[in-house]
Design a binder for these strands. Structure first.
Lengths: 158, 158
DNA sequence: ATACTTGCAAATGATTTGCCAGTGT
DNA sequence: ACACTGGCAAATCATTTGCAAGTAT
């Protein structure tokens, strides 16, 4: 998960598409990678390497954590995968989708909400105007407290 | 650095003030703590535990890293210290100041800019209106690319 | 056949914990 | 005196690296 920004961006719609990309890049479409991709396609959103490794709730044979990390890194280099940092916890990985999603992370309940970038455009522009700073909430989310947790008597997590 | 939010907030102006707080809380004003506080007061902004431990550039006798972490945690519980997460790297610690500062972190050069919360108020309100989400950039900064790094041929860090 | 991959053990980096000796009040 | 601290070794957590054995093309 070392690098962050300047990675190509290649949203894909199917596993076969990734298989093609992989081979064109001189890589192999191994069983471990098919499993990883099935897990990512099955997940409806960002998941940790650990969750992915343990078959993502499905009864699939789990893969080795090390390989999962290595493959996520490789797929990220190809632009097929992206990761977000969920506060303190482990990083979360998801398939690239166009447009690239941005995230809100609730400090109180730990929930990560993925949002369409247009909905943050105005805020991003305000920050750009005020600081000349191009904010992106794709890799590190907007941190704060979500609507549910602002309500009285909500002491969830963190 | 475990906990994040619901910590008291007690900005202080001098080491003696902290000494008072410490004793009133049933703690001791030890030599190690005086050193730590001198380092924090000397630093003009957020610094890592490691930097603080090694006397912060000064030729002061460095303290044990473990103790530095323990004392930073304790001072944070008292509200005297706060920490921010600087992307991938180590956490950064600073004395509490009123109003509580918010931060911008440049993905490209790693620079952490501390800003007066008013300058982010409009953006925060926009996010509140759009998502009912109360954004705070005190503990996790706004992430993106700073003005300097947007200029051509700027390949700094990360 | 060969380069790319895997799984397992061991290394990292940041931070925390256990423990016992040391010290502020 | 006694409870609170300090230092040092060892543990954690998420992630990475080294390597020898396995496999896709």
């Amino acid at each position: 998960m070392t690098r962050a920004a300047h990675t190509p961006f290649a949203p894909v719609a199917s596993i076969d598409e990734v298989a093609g990309l992989l081979r064109r890049a001189g890589g192999r479409f191994s069983a471990a990678r098919r499993l990883l991709l099935e897990a990512l396609f099955a997940a409806d959103g960002p998941a940790s390497a650990e969750q992915i490794a343990s078959g993502l709730g499905g009864r699939g044979l789990e893969a080795d954590l090390t390989s999962v990390y290595r493959n996520l890194e490789y797929l990220e280099e190809l632009g097929v995968v992206r990761h977000v940092h969920a506060g303190h916890g482990a990083g979360l990985y998801a398939l690239s989708r166009a447009p690239e999603r941005e995230y809100l992370l609730c400090d109180a309940c730990g929930t990560v909400t993925s949002v369409h970038p247009e909905r943050l455009a105005a805020a991003r522009e305000l920050i750009q105007a005020e600081f000349g700073f191009a904010a992106r909430f794709t890799h590190f989310p907007v941190s704060g407290v979500c609507a549910a947790c602002r309500e009285p008597g909500c002491q969830d997590r963190a």
